[in-house]
Amino acid sequence: MKRIIILAAATLLLMHGSVLAGTAYDFPAVGQASTTLRVEGSGDIEAIAPLIRDFQAMQPGLSITYVDSLTNELYSTLELQCNKGEITADLVFSSSADHMVKLANDGCAQPHQSNETRRLPDHAVWHDEVFGFTFEPAVIVYNRDLVPPADVPSSRDQLVELLRRRAAEYMGRVGTYDIARSGIGYLFAFFDAQQSSAFGRLLEGLGRAQARLYCCTGELLDDIASGKILIGYNLLGSYAYGRLKAGAPIGIVLPRDYTLVLTRAAFVPKHAANPQAGKRFLDYLVSVRGQHVAAQSAFFFAYGQPLPDGVEAMDPDVQSGIYRPIGIGPSLLAVTDSQKRNRLLDEWRDVFPAAGE
Rank of each mutant, 00 (worst) to 15 (best):
F191V: 04
D222G: 12
A211E: 07
R208N: 12
I184H: 13
L230I: 14
Q194E: 11
A225D: 06
Q210L: 10
Y177W: 05
R208V: 09
Y233P: 03
I231W: 08
D223Y: 03
A209R: 03
G232H: 05
L203Y: 06
L220F: 12
Y233I: 02
G205Y: 02
F188M: 07
L202D: 02
A189V: 11
R208L: 01
Y186G: 04
D222M: 12
D192C: 15
I224S: 02
A193E: 12
G200P: 11
L187N: 00
S226Q: 10
T217H: 04
L187P: 04
R208K: 14
G218I: 14
G218W: 06
L230M: 08
A193N: 08
D223R: 11
D222C: 11
L213T: 12
L187E: 01
Y233M: 08
G207D: 03
S182H: 06
L221W: 06
I179E: 12
Q194M: 15
G185F: 02
G200A: 08
L220C: 13
F199Q: 15
S197L: 14
I184P: 03
A211Q: 11
A211C: 08
K228Y: 07
A211G: 06
G207A: 09
F190V: 10
D223E: 04
S196C: 03
I229K: 00
F190L: 09
Y186L: 07
D178R: 09
L235K: 08
Q210A: 13
Y233K: 15
C216I: 05
Q195K: 15
D222P: 13
L202H: 02
F188L: 10
A198I: 15
I231M: 00
L221K: 01
Y177E: 04
L206H: 00
S196Q: 01
R201P: 10
I184V: 12
L206T: 02
F190Y: 03
F199S: 06
S196E: 04
A209H: 04
E204Q: 15
L206E: 01
A180I: 07
Y177I: 09
T217P: 05
G200C: 12
G183Y: 01
I184Q: 14
R201S: 08
S226C: 03
G207H: 08
C215Q: 15
A180T: 09
S197G: 09
F191W: 12
Y214W: 01
A189W: 09
C215T: 12
A198T: 13
D178E: 01
L203G: 00
G232A: 09
L203N: 00
C216H: 11
G232E: 01
F190M: 05
Y214C: 01
A211T: 13
D223F: 06
A189C: 11
S182F: 07
I224A: 05
G227P: 00
I224Q: 00
R212S: 01
I179T: 15
S182V: 08
N234D: 11
